[in-house]
Design a protein around this nucleic acid. Structure first.
Lengths: 210, 210
DNA sequence: AGCCGTATGTAACAAATGTTACTGCATCAC
DNA sequence: GTGATGCAGTAACATTTGTTACATACGGCT
């Protein structure tokens, strides 16, 4: 495990801390689609992402969903962090977007490490900052963009985190992420296809030029 | 100043830290409408709010605005925190919602205090947590609610932070905060008036029952 | 009172998004 | 092959929100 930690977090965290992570962390490998966090559940450990991507969703009382953002290699989950610290229920849902490798850190280390390691404090603050920015960018999208631009942005993000220009999703799945209906997504995708930006197949979308 | 600090933060922060705040902080009193942070500007100090309320807005490239949330007594600005730490431009705009009293802390204290004081770390983490939750609640509103419910929520928040059931705003100002048009707000307010929930006057709205 | 600037009311229309319903097509199990 | 199932295409329509245009009302000022 130690080598993977070093590769991903070596430039961020000091050696002594990497060693501690190696000792107390648990390596975890999850398949695409695995539900890492259920909305409303309590969280007992926080993930450091080694590879793959995690998508973070907001879920309302009626079970409606909305994609907030993706986490990638080198990221951690700010919501988990803060839930650990204030011991609250999770407000979000986390699903493995791709097969992913994680290291799970028991939450009781959090307070110790923030006191002891400057690099850990910086890492945690930076994580919060990034998530806050991403949340605000999500607000931007919903508030300021029309659905066609939101869809474009979604496709862009998707090919980035999956590192693949083919998106293996049904229109319905995309509709859930953007909190709209399947018909709307089909309509807009068709428009994009006519504009030569994507090619539509069954269960997948090839992004040609965005 | 020391007394006001103690009254507002005494239960949160340890005495030694309160004393430091007293020494390095600058007391600042701003009138309603004062622009504390311009979008795109760099931030040199962080505010602790003693009294009053601050509204935090997102502003896009075209100058369109959207209310993110209000800060109140005992709060601090998480965006300022994180901008200080990563030395980035502000992504937001802050306006005094009411007359307000603040203590401004030079940013170079941040790193020292997070290392030195456990209570400060907790305060900072809690602030981040609250802001992230509020940002996500804003996302909820925009994504899951129709404009009439968003308006209701807005009026509720407004009477809470102002501690006054009369809202002294024009329809146009409300429209800016919710990123819609004046006509839409007038229309919906009229509907609320017919439902007996508000009473409309020139330049102000009495909230009767929400 | 008469005037002016601003705020509000309202109608009519436009655009974006959501909904329902139905079609055809591919795939899979049998 | 047949039937079942799930996905995508599309039309027709409903609803929500945004836009334009104009009328009216209010408050302060002279």
């Amino acid at each position: 495990m130690i080598q993977e930690i070093k590769n991903n977090y070596g430039h961020l965290l000091e050696d002594e801390l990497l060693e501690e992570i190696n000792q107390v962390g648990t390596f975890k490998e999850v398949p695409e689609g695995f539900e890492l966090i259920k909305a409303g559940s309590y969280i007992k450990s926080m993930p450091l992402i080694i590879s793959g991507a995690i998508k973070i969703l907001r879920e309302d009382n009626d079970g409606d969903e909305l994609l907030l953002y993706f986490l990638e290699q080198g990221d951690t989950c700010a919501m988990t962090l803060s839930c650990c610290l204030v011991n609250q229920k999770s407000e979000i849902k986390a699903i493995a977007e791709t097969d992913a490798k994680l290291i799970m850190i028991p939450i009781d280390k959090m307070e110790k490490w923030t006191a002891k390691y400057k690099s850990w404090r910086n890492f945690v603050f930076e994580s919060y900052h990034k998530r806050l920015i991403e949340a605000i960018e999500t607000i931007d999208s919903i508030a300021f963009l029309n659905m066609d631009d939101r869809l474009l942005k979604y496709l862009k993000d998707k090919i980035k985190v999956n590192q693949d220009h083919t998106i293996n999703n049904t229109h319905q799945q995309i509709a859930y992420d953007l909190h709209t209906s399947r018909v709307v997504i089909s309509r807009l995708l068709k428009k994009l296809e006519k504009a030569g930006k994507v090619k539509l197949n069954r269960n997948n979308i090839e992004v040609l030029d965005i």
